[in-house]
Structure formats: C-alpha cells, structure tokens
Design a binder for these strands. Structure first.
Length: 491
RNA sequence: GGUUCCUUGGCCGAGUGGCUUAGGCACUGGUCUGCAAAACCAGUUACGGCGGUUCGAAUCCGCCAGGAACCUCCA
C-alpha cells in the first residue's frame, strides 16, 4: 500500500505527484563529489537527502537503481586554455599521480559517508572510466549539428540549441540575458558564442590527465560525464535527477541540452535540488574556504567547534531541516540536535520496558499516518520528526503510568518507531546502555555496582551511593534511578 | 548589473488564506527523588517594515529594508 509521493520538481517549480516511468521502479541519478579534497559538512547534505529518498522509496516497495558518480576528471580551474584540471593541479602540488589523489579522496569519501550511515548507491561510476562513452555522446551531438570543433576542442552550440529548444528551462534563465551579462573573460575565445560550453577540451602540454581522440589529446568537458553515465546505466530517460542547488546552472542546464540533442528527448522527469549548508550566513564551500570537514566535526578539531559532534548528531541535524531550505551551522543548533536525538533514542530503547495493558488510550495509527504523510510530502523530514517526538511523549507517558497501551498497539508502536528511525531516516543508536551495551560482561559488572549502590541506599549510606554515582559520571557512565531500580548508560 | 530565493518567538526549525498553542533546544513553576539526574504535567515569548486584495493573511499582490544563491569550479 504505497502512499502517493509528492516531489518538488525544479523544472516546474512546484510539487508534483511522483509517477515512475516503469511501475514500481525508480531510476535515480545524483551528482556526486569531485574527489580532490576531504569530505566536508556540505557534502553530507545531498548524500543524506538522497539516502533518505532511496530509503523511503524502498520502504514503499519501489525497486530503486541509484547512480551517483565520482567526478575524477574534467573540471577546469578557470575558463580558457590555461585552465588546469583540478585533479592534476592537486597532484602536482603533492607530487602524486592523479589517480592516487582520486583513489585517496574517494576512499575518504566512502569512509565518512559510511559513518553517516549513508547507504552506498547501486552504481558509482567514474568519469575517467567512461571516456569512450563520453566521446560517443560528442560524436552524436556533432552528427546532429549542435557542436563544432575549434582548434582541437569541441563546443556545444548553445545558440542553435536555443532556437529549437528552450535553453534555461531548469534555471529560469534566458539566453539573451546570459549573453548581455557575460563577462569578457577571454578575448581570444575559441567559442562562437560566450554561452557555448566545452564537450571536449584539448589538453595543454603540461596537462597530465589526457586521452586520445580524433579531435585532440584532451579530456571531456565539464558537464558531459553525467549525460554519458546516466544514459549508460539508467537509459535515455529516467525518473529523478538530483544534486546540489549550486549545480543547477550551468551544470544541469548543460546536461539537459546535451542529452536532449543526443537522445532526442529530455533526460529526467523530476529534478530535485538540495539547498546549501551555510556558516555565518554564507554558503559553506571550497571556494570560500569556510568549510568544516567531517573529520574535524567528528573530532571537534576546528576553531569554530566547541565540541565534537557524532555522525548521528550531524545526520539528525540535517534531517531536522527540510532539504530545500538553507541550514545554518552553529554550535548551539548542533547541541540542540544532539540532545533531541538522545531523547529520541532513549525513548526507543525504553519501548522494550513497556508492559501492555488490556486497552489503549493512545492512538499510534494516527501518529504513523501523519508521519508517513509528511515524508511523502517532498521528504518533509522535520515534520516527520516532530511526530516522532509526539510519539516519544506517548512512550514516556506509558512508562510513567499516565497512559496504557494494548498488545497490538505496542507491536505497532515498536514497528513504527524502528522502521522510521532506523530504516527510513537511517539513524543509529550511538548511545550505549544496559539494553544494548553489546558487552554482557560490562553489563554484569554494572549490575553489580548498581546493586552495591542500592544496598548503600537502603542503609541510608548516601555518601557511598553518591560517590558511586559521581565517580561513574566522571568516567562517562550515568546512573538513572527509576521506580524499578536504576539503569546505567554509557555517555 | 541580470536571474532566482529568503527574512517566523531566546536559539534552531516547520507551516502557504480561517483550530497548526508544529517539533527540538533553552527557560520558569510543579510532580517524582534521601538529594540530584532522567521522566511527567503546566507555562512564557512570533511571524522584517509599509500599503493593498479579502468577511479573514505569517500564508496572495506591490513597494521598501536586510540577507543569500547562481551568472567561473563548487554538494
């Protein structure tokens, strides 16, 4: 019983009901990272957003093929002939082979995404592994008359394209506006029109990454890899294309133009764009150098950080905002997320202690419906989470004896919370405790200590009882007294 | 300069015409506790400014102020 899913489509600038091309199947392509630097907080936004999307789709019984590329070639530092490939530049700097740099940062990216509990995509193609496919797309575009060769490079003819197709449908731009506002970067341009973009670029002699072609020894243009690889793995038309808002123009606009000429039809039906993470109100990014890497975040090793933040705190922080809103980094916001997540996880853990009654005076089904409706409404995770907290209140009230729950409702409650929190939102319980310490010996020892303290308490030996509690707190274990004795928790 | 977008209570962050007291964090009072913590109950603070449309606007329109993204690689 899949519920209708609504997705905000950048193409129409409105929410649309999602209808797959093939029943129960979803083809999803997302622009992945350029692997020439450590993954930072900004990278986690699209990764988590589209991880949420695939998890939700799978829960709704869709079969998903999720393709997320690794860009390891082709992006230029600057327009014009003296542009250096980013990968190559870094390689020269560090005296490493370009592929060595790519390999290192790809692994770093994988490691940190795994820590964030981001599932691996179905296919993770690399631009450098699809040079032939990209050249085929160039051939196709030249054959159809929408590209021209110029001094060993090949450019896409935007003006011609714009005569037959609306260039700018995605970003809402008009070609004449673009032309009137183009900066005069290079007077000796090989392009016929400033808005034209490269499909193949002749490599300068010092350029390390290069491949032979009939046009020149060179490398594929900025936007080509996504057109070539989405076609190869998802077909000429697929369902959803995702990526960061900063890629909307020119990257995705050019991708649409290339694919439209190559295949005679637009590539994706739905375009989804996640917004940026900001810091001090500004986009966190490479260019500004104001990014905080995930390594720094998890270790607390950055001047802007008051403490370390766990991977799940970061994940929860991101999920607490809607993916199309900017999200501003701050210590207080992260700390709030950390505490909220802890409260949520504790409630889930405490579900195991609930005893069912004959009757229920709580409505689990309503909370569940509202929560799933929110997720289906353009992945409104903050609203979904608000219902989870309503459910937390329900759980705690049952445990406090203010509410009762029937056996059936209790089963539904557990299934609901576990499904949404762990399967769909992809959270993990990082807080150890007597329920899931994973080490029964430690737990046995703790039970002994708790018993000793209980004995002290029954003897009104408050000094000993408090000493045990305080000393444990010093080593990061907290004792929580309850009606039915104490439980311990690893902080 | 052009295009697009944003401005919600102490902080974060949802909400797009009429009951959302959204939710989280913080704070205040109470319950529980040997004390505390946790938990529970109750409570406080809001819709950038000015006009307009409407029976009614945080939500639609216009103007103003402030901010952001894109126009060059960027998640």
């Amino acid at each position: 019983m899949p519920i209708p899913l609504f997705i905000y489509n950048t193409l129409s600038r409105s929410k649309e009901e999602f209808k797959p091309l093939i029943d129960n199947h979803v083809g999803l392509y997302v622009c992945g990272p350029t692997v020439y630097g450590d993954p930072h907080l900004g990278h986690s936004r699209p990764a988590i957003t589209f991880d949420l999307l695939t998890r939700f789709l799978k829960h709704q019984d869709y079969k998903v093929r999720y393709v997320r590329n690794i860009t390891d070639v082709g992006h230029l530092e600057s327009d014009g002939d003296e542009g250096e490939d980013k990968i190559a530049k870094k390689a020269q700097l560090e005296q490493l082979e370009p592929m060595e740099v790519v390999h290192y940062y790809t692994e770093r990216y994988h490691d940190y995404m795994q820590m964030l509990n981001v599932n691996s995509p179905s296919i993770e193609p690399r631009a450098s592994g699809h040079i032939i496919e990209q050249q085929e797309v160039i051939n196709s575009i030249i054959e159809k008359g929408y590209a021209y060769e110029s001094q060993g490079s090949v450019y896409f003819d935007v003006e011609k394209y714009n005569n037959d197709h609306p260039y700018g449908i995605l970003s809402g731009r008009k070609l004449e506006d673009l032309l009137s506002n183009t900066r005069d970067l290079d007077g000796q341009s090989e392009k016929r029109c400033p808005a034209d973009f490269a499909l193949w670029k002749k490599a300068a002699p010092e350029h390390i990454m290069r491949w032979p072609s009939k046009w020149s020894d060179g490398f594929p243009g900025w936007h080509l890899e996504c057109s070539a690889m989405s076609k190869k793995y998802l077909g000429e038309q697929f369902d959803i294309h995702g990526g960061g808002m900063d890629l909307l123009f020119p990257h995705h606009e050019c991708e649409i133009a290339q694919s439209t000429i190559d295949n005679g039809k637009a590539p994706a039906n739905y375009w989804m764009h996640n917004n940026m993470i900001t810091i001090d109100g500004q986009k966190m990014g490479k260019s500004l150098g104001n990014f905080i890497t995930l390594e720094e975040l998890f270790a607390g090793s950055h001047p802007k950080l008051e403490q370390a933040y766990s991977p799940m705190t970061i994940r929860f922080f991101i999920l607490q905002a809607h993916y199309r809103s900017t999200l501003d980094f701050s210590n207080s916001a992260l700390q709030a997320s950390e505490k909220g997540l802890k409260r949520l996880m504790e409630a889930i853990q405490n579900m195991g202690n609930i005893e069912a009654s004959e009757t229920s005076n709580v409505n689990i089904d309503e909370l569940k419906q509202k929560c799933f409706t929110a997720l289906a409404d353009d992945l409104n995770s903050p609203i979904a989470i608000s219902y989870l907290f309503d459910t937390v209140k329900v759980i705690n009230n049952i445990l406090a004896g203010n509410n009762t729950i029937s056996n059936d409702d209790l089963s539904e409650l557990k299934l609901f919370m576990n499904t949404v929190c762990f399967d769909i939102l992809g959270l993990e319980n990082e807080f150890g405790g007597s329920e899931n310490s994973g080490d029964s010996k430690i737990d046995d020892v703790m039970q002994l200590i708790i018993k000793l303290r209980a004995d002290a308490k029954s003897n009104k030996d408050w000094g000993t009882a408090d000493k045990i509690r305080d000393e444990l707190a010093n080593i990061g274990i907290s004792i929580k007294d309850g009606k039915d004795g104490a439980v311990w928790e690893n902080n």
